[in-house]
Design a protein around this nucleic acid. Structure first.
Lengths: 182, 182
DNA sequence: CCCTGATTGTTCCTAGCAGGAATGTCCGTG
DNA sequence: CACGGACATTCCTGCTAGGAACAATCAGGG
């Protein structure tokens, strides 16, 4: 067992496995990717396929996951040790500050190179994107019930929705502001 | 002149140089890093020192920046070509969707592994962080006037402030919600 | 019953990037 | 004049993104 520090992505995957720990079959890397795309991506970038397998290998080396015996594809299950480790990380690890890479804000920052018209149309496109993404997340939210198992997930989904709403409001405000500019 | 695609970070640096193009001296990599830490980091992660020099080398190869003659440290200035290129990228390049890596949301998603108490104290820490960061940005905003040169930068700073405010509000809401949970 | 294309499952490769250590220089201060 | 701190740059290591490649399986159509 190697004791290298694991990346947040590794813990995120571990978390997805914990969510599913009632299922004795475990999950394949492929299935994990689908789950990640469906839930994780709203708060943490969805890792590439190759990355998922890399992280799983590390988790496996650290004995935080085990491979369920099967003749087909490799299926992963969280171990007791893994669940403990996740809990330790959750509340004793460093909680870093959110990382934001906002291409629209980046462009807006250089706004004087362009006209308010150009900026405005970029903001409108962004508003459409936000609406689409919000609709996606609303779909996810609608599928979550109120049972204990998913209670916090639902809460985070609500957070996400509020996040999109507030960004849309801010952007719409800027859009209006642009009209008053030369 | 190599025509490789440049990364958003390269364009961000180019943008900082354009902001300063009245200054015939140009800027060193070190100075650019300071500017980036001061402005860019609220919307785009601040690149590491080594990364800045790498990007500058690429910009230089593409002739989007030139080095001002000087016997001391290397000082970079944007070229005519660079400014054109930035403008092209701004409005004809792909505007990707914002990337968010939110460690607090990530942990909240796994909330059932912990108690509302633990979650609550994490949210409070996060609220403090948000307040500190907001104060930083407010400091930047206060230094910006209303002259055309910085008009859009001020607008983006306002956006940032609104962003922090809305996240703080959302987090505070969740904090309250936790109190009603078992 | 074979062809085709989509889905599942996994690995490999390449370039990029983070971020800290290492290396200097220069400058003011005790 | 030694020393700490700001300035300036490079180097190294390992992680990460992301797409290409490779297979196997499966479903539907001619």
């Amino acid at each position: 067992m190697v004791n290298r520090a694991l990346s947040p992505t590794a813990y995120a995957l571990l978390g997805l496995l914990v969510f599913d720990r009632e299922n004795p079959e475990g999950m394949t890397g492929y299935e994990l990717k689908q789950r990640a795309d469906f839930t994780l991506r709203y708060y943490w970038v969805s890792p590439a396929m190759s990355q998922i397998y890399t992280e799983l290998r590390k988790l496996s080396e650290a004995e935080f996951v085990e491979t369920a015996p099967s003749d087909g594809p490799t299926r992963y299950r969280v171990t007791e040790l893994g669940e403990e480790q996740l809990q330790t990380w959750l509340f004793h690890g460093e909680v870093g500050f959110p990382i934001l890479k906002h291409p629209v804000a980046l462009r807006l920052l250089m706004g004087r190179l362009s006209t308010p018209d150009q900026l405005g149309s970029m903001l409108e496109t962004h508003l459409d994107d936000l609406a689409a993404r919000r609709a996606d997340l609303q779909g996810v939210r609608d599928m979550l019930g109120d049972e204990h198992r998913v209670r916090y997930a639902a809460m985070v989904a609500d957070w996400g929705l509020a996040y999109y709403d507030s960004e849309a409001q801010i952007v719409a405000g800027l859009r209006e502001q642009l009209d008053g500019m030369d």
